[in-house]
Design a protein around this nucleic acid. Sequence first.
RNA 1: GGGCGAUUAGCUCAGUUGGUUAGAGCAUUUGCCUUACAAGCAAAGGGUCAUAGGUUCGAGUCCUAUAUCGCCCACCA
Length: 842
Amino acid sequence: MLDTKYNHLEVEKGKYEDWKEKGYFESGDLSKKPYCIVIPPPNVTGKLHLGHAWDTTLQDILIRYKRMDGYDALWVPGMDHAAIATEAKVVQKLRQNGVDKYELGRDGFLDACWDWTHEYAKNIREQWAKLGLSLDYRKEAFTLDENLTRAVKKVFVDLYNEGLIYRGERIINWDPVAKTALSNEEVIYKDDEGAFYHLKYFIEGTDEYLDVATTRPETLFGDTAVAVNPDDERYKHLIGKKAILPVVNKAIPIVGDEHADPTFGTGVVKITPAHDPNDFEVGNRHNLERIVVMNEDATMNANALKYEGMTREECREALLKDLEEAGLLISVEKMVHSVGHSERTDAVVEPYLSKQWFVKMRPLADRVLENQKNKKTKVNFVPPHYEKTMNHWMEITYDWCISRQLWWGHRIPAWYKGDEVYVGVDAPSGDGWVQDNDVLDTWFSSALWPFATLGWPNETDDYKRYYPNSVLVTGYDIIPFWVNRMTFQGLKFTDSRPFKDCLIHGLIRDKEGRKMSKSLGNGVDPMDVIDEYGCDALRFFLTTNSAPGADLRYDEEKVKSSWNFLNKLWNASRFVLMNLEDFKEEDYTLDNLSLADKWILNRLNNVIKEVRKNMDTYDFHNVGNTLYAFIWNDFCDWYIELSKSDMSKTNKSVLLLVLTDIMKMLHPFTPYITEEIYQMLPIKEQPSIMISSYPSIRDFDYQKEEDKLNKILEDIIAIRNLKATNNITKQAKVKYVTDASIENIYRSQLKIKDENILTDSGDNYLTSNYKSKNIDITYYYEGTKEDDSKKDDEIKKLEESIARREKLLSNENYVSKAPAQIVDADRKKLAEEKERLALLKG
RNA sequence: GGGCGAUUAGCUCAGUUGGUUAGAGCAUUUGCCUUACAAGCAAAGGGUCAUAGGUUCGAGUCCUAUAUCGCCCACCA
């Protein structure tokens, strides 16, 4: 017998291991239609957070649903090596042990990274298990696997051969802590306190000077020009002359360039082509020299003269002091401006001139834009407006810097010998070739994830069968990093969208709506939630409390509320199982269904229809609400209550049938409790609910019976209301007239016992009456006069409603233009209202 | 500056191609230990759907403008 309270710890114990052992997570039944999802690979850098729990639960819901519904459902697990993120963590860990990355050397460092990876991969697998995810572990992939590596090399080489990958000297975002280039997506802009420093740049041969404002005085050693707008009346006469660079005392040209905005600052801008992307462009236009003034760790180099060796910050301070003493500092204007920080190390990013590898984006992006116009081959975003996020990125995209000065990752398949460059899958033959030291951006490999995990570039069975993937599930914050890149690489290399649908969810926020972050300390560990409320409660909360694509606030009260719902389900099951203790297979019958049986069966049919529809459109919150309402309101509040005075074999059979379908429909959301209860059912089709069949609607129509009982239930609610508002106690006497076939429903639900039936004339009582088509009932209780206020209220409301409806129906435009069924429904309703009014008045 | 959203009950949110008198959970009020569940049961109150126009027989839903808030991208010498 079940405990009176749902104990999630007991319920969830051991089931995952059991499912896994029995092979229920495994795909490969070729007789079924394939359905495939690849997991967004978590980084091997830490613990899964609530966002992962949400993301993966959505996928597990889909996989479990499709598996039950007769598909060969494959869910590919995997993880991402996360180049810079992992490298930063391993470097930090080594440093704590007094070990330096460079002393350790490349091979030793990679060994340390692999050790780290194995440790964290194990943790992640344990967390997947705690979340109940039905992943096919035989297919698990890692972005540095042999096959992924082969795919990465092929893609690099092919793009290079087509001229879509090139190496060039550009201004890139440099992370001076990790000492690597970053893509624009890896730079986080934050508002920092800074200042506008106004410096004197004397005009050569005069004692006039230009007021040049800069936020970065320390870069002046790299200045190779001063620019003014060619239309700026204040300065245009100076174009062609020279300015004297302060401290350095070098003459640099004054150039006219559109980049100088006459309305911004003083309208004069110093040009540092090696340390600013805009200045780099200006430098190209005017053929200016590029002078790099910093080392890789952002300390000043020899070009910074006596400041060599100082950090950027030290140099700025010392330089400003010297400028001030020399009378070259005009003023300091405090300001807040946004400064780029490295996503992984938080270091202030230095725009830095260096030689890097780039992907030429324009042709690849254009192909995506073209493909999205084709309804049959495009990626279908859910909700659809997220397509705009991708398309906009494709429209404004710039070349992607893919080389990283790291060791942990896919080493760039390029070799150099003198001025010669060789790019190929394998090392070139011959002596003297040296491979590029750099690795690729981690997103370069994850962009291939949907097909490379299935064996591509080989035409494997899995690739042929499961590609393109059925759906990809991820958060909207990952669209620019990942979804976009998978889409253009998929089109480029497989001539296909990587997935048919792309289900986008939002971010998890805290109760106040703030992003969860380490610095705020408002993060919640999903494993703690699971310990306290259970995996099922967490999953149900995560997936049924927000509309698709919207953010979700984590609110412990709502997790509790989910737990309460599961407790309700537990107790309803307990009731059914108690009453079906000796129920045998041969007792099962659906003959002689009662009105209530037909009512719940008809409701169930509608629920199955509704749930299937919403499962297919990813509207899980609707599924949740539908099931919640059906289970709590229809099944528990009415059908179980009505069953208490029935308990025929038919009634028990229907209880079993409905409970079974409830468990099945809920199973993708709450796998554990549904399995637990399924195991206790007296009749079940499969040894596990995981492999049972998803409910389909049955071939009957009890709509009339449903409508009939609904009317009776409305009566019961109205009569209970009458009793409550008039303080009619259970001792009150009652007299009623109703049909014998439905009498028991009223008696049981209104708790009318024989001793309540009025036997005398009733003259000495206060009375309250309720009358409908089905029942005329009067309560007699202490007092002296009839209370009519309820009835009067209803009459007044009815009259208003009738008047409104008559007016509507007399409107020619409405009757002629509105759909017939809408008008008919109004007519029917009007007739009913009139009938009810007549009954109340008569 | 470019793009994308949001604004509905005290709170958190639904509201599917326009179609009765806008829903749920939590919270609130009242009454109940009724033999599955008091983490429960029964009943109830609570919203001029941000604002102003427009289209329509009919607008929370479509269009235009405004306000407020949020996110992404770019720029910030």
